[in-house]
Design a binder for these strands. Sequence first.
RNA 1: GGUACCUUGGCCGAGUGGUUAGGCACCGGUCUGCAAAACCGUAGACAGCAGUUCGAAUCUGCUAGGUACCUCCA
Length: 487
Amino acid sequence: MENKLFIYNTLTRKKEEFKPLHAPHVGMYVCGPTVYGDAHLGHARPAITFDILFRYLTHLGYKVRYVRNITDVGHLEHDSDDGEDKIAKKARLEKLEPMEVVQYYTLRYHKAMEKLNVLPPSIEPHASGHIIEQIEFVKKILDAGYAYESEGSVYFDVEKYNKEYHYGKLSGRNIDELLETTRELDGQTEKRRSVDFALWKKAAPEHIMHWSSPWSEGFPGWHLECSAMGTKYLGEKFDIHGGGMDLMFPHHECEIAQSCAALGHDTVNYWMHNNMVTINGQKMGKSLGNFITLDEFFTGSHELLTQSYSPMTIRFFILQAHYRSTVDFSNEALIASEKGLARLMEAYERLQKIQANTTSTVEINDLRNKCEIAMCDDLNTPIVISHLFDASKAINTVHDGKGTLSAADLAELKEVFRLFIEDILGLRTEVESTSNDAYKKAIDLLLNIRMQAKQNKDWATSDKIRNELTALGFTIKDTKDGFEWSL
RNA sequence: GGUACCUUGGCCGAGUGGUUAGGCACCGGUCUGCAAAACCGUAGACAGCAGUUCGAAUCUGCUAGGUACCUCCA
């Protein structure tokens, strides 16, 4: 592995060579979902992006501890005054325990991720299971003097923090402007400044999720769980923190401030952010009501969808764009991805059947290196895919009998395809597991009868078999000495 | 209003100071009983204007359009 991995660091806005703090160990934290609703395409993006990073780092030989949290304490809805968070609200509306809501959507999230072939993280901590750690974290910040208590709640003192450190260094925000523009609006609330954010919030009477703390019966602030759990499992300094771009401010900015205030130093070396999924050029999001859940994609049950799309099509669609670009949803684009993926996977299948020759007429030597170079350039999966398509062309040429592959080249090609398609890109053939041998043999039998009919030039019979199978959803392809079929 | 970013051929989507990205669609051809698939080939692009340069889609400036964040959000 001579190629060095470069990743784009939001902190410096540059691609930087990745150097782990404690090689071969790598610590990586990614903001996970808030489990109060079904996962949509937007959730698939970071999950897949960082799944790729997780897989690639592992491939490079690192031992990765990947932490992705489940936010189950919820965040406040709109006004902080009503003291109700998303999960609590959902629970109240559905007359459930909050933890029933959490359990239900966590399981559904896991199922969706599994379908997308997203590997489970090494640790998946729940915010609700780390209340003690969060309280301890608040204490540290209070002890350091960067927070103040007010009517049972604890707030982070952004203005004071900014005198010692730099609040806004991740998002490029100017704290002075924030202070200027918000000063008048403030005054009557518990906070000294509107830019201050809650570390601990006293629960209003109707708030059904609350825990005891030295300050009040309440719940932890919105940004605290990641600071607390990240440092708990990855240490006071770790390598990578990822998440969606929309989390850059205020969430990640606040995380930096909290951790820095509590520990006196930065915790994260590389900040990585995936871009958004858009629909008609506009961000897809829960609050905008224009989102399509992953299950709706899988079943095609959404008015905007002209058909269903398999999990691998969704994965491939996302991987065909670089993670830092927006990716715009459309049926046309998804259908193109579906077809492209089928072509790639078909070439991969054909590769398994190719017989080695004494020499090669197609060039495949660079493939592995080209793919590695693309991955090392900030995980450029679209380029990796384009190289795989180039190689597919060569495979098809050989499959058509218009070229040959030597045993060594064939072995190398098989290995590189397996490595990149399966291990790194995480694509898998979507086999209907319902199929059994008897059924397969029945289809083969029908097609063998058709072969006989063809040899007898009985086109009526051969076409009837093909047409009726096609009508049932089968794809029949004639080859030189037989046939191929798929459902 | 502040901050950041984007604008590539019919669609999606890489890339970068000088050479074909790739996929889907289209067109022509090969193959086929026909088809499908596959292969070969053609065509088509860098929002606009000005500047830097031997040379810019790539750098700079301006203009137009768009998006995100500034409230929870992947």
